[in-house]
């Protein structure tokens, strides 16, 4: 990864964090980023989890890993098998 890409990534991460911090610290209360503790019922649902069915995702990842060059993203990029 080039230095430029690293810097861009760092800036993006820092920017996202700063935005989150500003919104929650009241620097920009009109943004209302996020949910209040009493507004979390939807976020807590099974259907709203980032990995609803981990077993299905694991099967998918194993298949894609053995058929495609790209790996990782959601998690680590290792494969743990000799299929690629």
């Amino acid at each position: 990864m080039s230095v430029d890409r690293r810097l861009a990534l760092l800036a993006l991460t820092a920017g996202t964090l700063a935005l989150a911090a500003c919104a929650h610290d009241g620097a920009a209360p009109h943004l209302k980023l996020g949910a209040r503790p009493w507004e979390r019922d939807v976020l807590a649902r099974k259907s709203m989890q980032l990995a609803v069915e981990p077993a299905l995702l694991a099967f998918d990842d194993h298949t894609y890993f053995s058929k495609e060059a790209a790996a990782g993203g959601r998690g680590f990029d290792g494969g743990g098998c000799g299929c690629n």
């Binding site: 996020g34 949910a35 939807v42 976020l43 993203g73 959601r74 680590f76 990029d77």
Partner: peptide, 15 residues
């Protein structure tokens, strides 16, 4: 969490 019904995730992974 962006709103009470919307969340986003951003990952960088390297190997």
């Amino acid at each position: 969490v962006l709103t009470p019904a919307w969340l986003v995730q951003f990952n960088w992974s390297t190997g």
